[in-house]
Design a protein around this nucleic acid. Sequence first.
DNA 1: CGCACCTTTGACACTAGTCAATTTGGGTGG
DNA 2: CCACCCAAATTGACTAGTGTCAAAGGTGCG
Lengths: 239, 239
Amino acid sequence: MLSLSTIPQERAAPERAWQPQSRSAPSTLAECFQIAAVRRLEPREHLFCEGDPRTHVYRVETGALCLYKVMADGRRQIVSFALPGDLVGLGTGLSHMVSAQATSPTRLRSLATGALDQAARQDPSLGHKLYEALSDDLHSACDLILTVGQRGAIERVAAFLLAIGRRSARRGQAGSIIVLPMTRTDIADFLGLTIETVSRSFTKLKTSSVIRLIETSVVELVDKEALQRLADGAEREAA
Amino acid sequence: MLSLSTIPQERAAPERAWQPQSRSAPSTLAECFQIAAVRRLEPREHLFCEGDPRTHVYRVETGALCLYKVMADGRRQIVSFALPGDLVGLGTGLSHMVSAQATSPTRLRSLATGALDQAARQDPSLGHKLYEALSDDLHSACDLILTVGQRGAIERVAAFLLAIGRRSARRGQAGSIIVLPMTRTDIADFLGLTIETVSRSFTKLKTSSVIRLIETSVVELVDKEALQRLADGAEREAA
DNA sequence: CGCACCTTTGACACTAGTCAATTTGGGTGG
DNA sequence: CCACCCAAATTGACTAGTGTCAAAGGTGCG
């Protein structure tokens, strides 16, 4: 990460795209996005839908998006949550393979795929950064496959809370209090459960004093070790 | 990653690695692997385990691998099957994020990551191919998340058979007869089901004449449209 | 203040998991 | 060639964990 001290901050409305502040082409990912246009989304507003042409790559500044797929009969599976710092829209297809919708008020920056590709051609290390970001996405996807394929309801919720906790920690939010910038429905569609089961799982974790519900979307992870044990499936007769 | 210009040969078969047929550095992915060392794996033999240092990238020639993660208590989730033509071991981490095990007699070629990275630096289009392969893996992972998170047992098996069918078609195996180079246990661990449930689902599909079991691992997809409807969740009161 | 929407809680149904027995298939040795 | 053996697959009976349906709180906004 580089110093953000001198970065031109965008303010509210006009959101001009960029002014060529220096003649040198941007070479780092951070520099690319510093000159990128800002966009705001209201909760439930879509950034793009599955099948739409893939025109831009986005970086979440604040708020959160969910990336999801839907089946013909309406069942929805959220494949990942994009939180501040995350890139959205990577990949090589001509069209998006998932839909992207804000789950809370969200600010993000957008960069035309063409511009990014060109910058990557000029600077291979930038290309590597994109490769790395995609690799991280795949890593997260594998973790979710494990969770959804093997864990029971409480295990899934425990794993989810720990994962969100780790991500906020990596963004500097120390401490054991985490904010969930999404509804129970979103969590359910992410974990492959129903809202009722998610709600019941929260209640059980609360009752057993492993977590504390400060608000419905603000959770204190009181006992992370216990949460980890639950996520790993203690409570079984061991294998 | 260091340069392993003299690629480590696996013992066993003669299978000489390469004869420098031309002095020009290989530039396409296919060329890179044509000069790569061959390796053979027996069923159940591991190529690498989760956490092992990531030293090589592999391409499956014949046979099949499963890539999986295991939980502390032994539950296993297969994250993908690598079939002929597929690349294994991509990504940027220092160590593998999954284990890789042959599910049938398998022949593959291995390329040191350092050599591949170097080749990619010389030819950006090769780097793009790797990026594309990783993007495809992510795409497949998302499909599996949808399957495991939202579909019922028969829906999962139907979707699995169709996916395998599409993949063999892409490799030139036309027709509706597919070979499953893995056990029922592997299929179960891939779909997040038990072997009993997988077996019962096969039986139901067979009974309703949607598939025909030529051998336990050779299936004829008699009615692909019906299979697709099943995978999409017809049989529900529509949403 | 009251209306929506989200969340929580309860009662019941049903899918898939568990446990157990049987059948099938492939390989080995007499 | 056949008998046997082991592993994998199938089938059955029963159970547990989630989903479904329904209703009752909470919370925020107009």
